[in-house]
Design a protein around this nucleic acid. Structure first.
Lengths: 207, 207
DNA sequence: GTAGGTTACCTAAAGGCATTAGGCAATTCC
DNA sequence: GGAATTGCCTAATGCCTTTAGGTAACCTAC
């Protein structure tokens, strides 16, 4: 019996590859075992459960993403940095759809913090150093960037923007323009009418 | 033997309830059968497969969301409409997390179109009638709104903004302010330097 | 260099979900 | 009321997860 040399690390890597090939939801302890030509039960000495395996894949992906982000951000500022970081997420999702899905896995806060969780928020904060925003607007902006990046990339992956004009690439470019403009021109607090009108009554025209 | 009165419709509704209670990924043909106190195989006369069941739940959720959106938009314009539609998505996701997850299911284009697929884009377009945007910027803006709404709501559901200041509600309010400002002030094409600098060279400071 | 301990992978088994085939009972339609 | 139809059933297969306990390979030391 030749030993396969399994480790939690190698299992996660194999799972990540599998995810990119057949989809993250198809990643199963059995499938990974098959890939190593090993019996299923053998994996349970290295990972606690199917969920544990998936968590490790998620952490792997988050780490890779953070690495790419850090590399892309080095030596850039302002809109240049904004676009670079945004493209890291989008490109990663296109190159590694399974891993990107994995990165979206619900992690409990402790696990996320132990992994690359904080690095991502840190990168968004770094981008915003190129703009003139004080707290708490800086945090609001961090969350906006996260929302747009994640939202756009998932909708694009789901096929939301294919088969319809204009091109998804063009929209992406223009959205980055728009975000840049918005960050350079962040509105002061309370510029408009009531934020949250009741569901029935009509509080008058908005303008 | 008393008949349970199963229909695809009722199965989808039960599945939606189940999703909100225990999570969409826990929705299984077996679990729904249990809920009707019926044997698993019986469901297969009404739905083709597990995937078929999940698709029906997704379409149910998308329809409910579109109904709420239409109701919220009636008689509103401008920022008021923007906030109303945005809150529909966020509130729905908070009230019905399982259904909201279901609505995120990858649907093939034909299925999505047959359901409420188009209504959602239509609602975003309706909101944008309150702003001065011509094509193709209007489409870019539709996609931006979709990305922000979906992105924010999923990150919030994943717990991304809890346990940290400022409050998620405050960020949401300020993001809507910001989007309103952005839409009233949408930048013209090509305001900045190269959108996509190469990975290594540094094209100079952004400003 | 081989004895002992540890580690890595195995066999076996139980339990859950998805799916199909074929049967009988409840409803429906003349 | 009898025939046709429909609705739910039993039975069976196959894949997945997880645990318990066994055996063979490796490592350590004398």
């Amino acid at each position: 019996m030749v030993r396969a040399g399994l480790t939690a690390e190698r299992l996660a890597r194999a799972g990540a590859e599998l995810a990119d090939e057949v989809g993250f939801d198809q990643v199963t302890v059995s499938a990974v075992a098959r890939r190593f030509d090993v019996k299923v039960a053998s994996l349970y000495s290295h990972v606690k459960s199917s969920h544990d395996l998936k968590t490790r894949i998620a952490l792997l992906a988050l780490g890779e993403l953070a690495d790419r982000g850090a590399a892309a951000l080095a030596g850039r500022a302002g809109k240049d940095a904004l676009a670079a970081l945004a493209n890291v997420y989008r490109d990663y999702a296109r190159e590694h759809p399974g891993r990107y899905d994995a990165a979206r896995l619900r992690l409990d806060p402790a696990t996320a913090a132990a992994g690359a969780g904080g690095r991502h928020a840190g990168m968004a904060r770094a981008v915003l150093r190129g703009y003139d925003l004080a707290e708490p607007d800086r945090t609001h902006a961090v969350r906006l960037l996260g929302s747009v990046f994640h939202g756009y990339v998932s909708l694009e992956a789901a096929g939301g923007f294919s088969h319809s004009a204009p091109d998804s690439q063009e929209t992406w470019t223009r959205i980055l323009d728009a975000l840049d403009a918005l960050l350079r021109n962040w509105p002061a607090e309370r510029p408009g009418p009531a934020e949250r009108p009741g569901p029935a009554e009509r509080p008058g025209p908005a303008e």
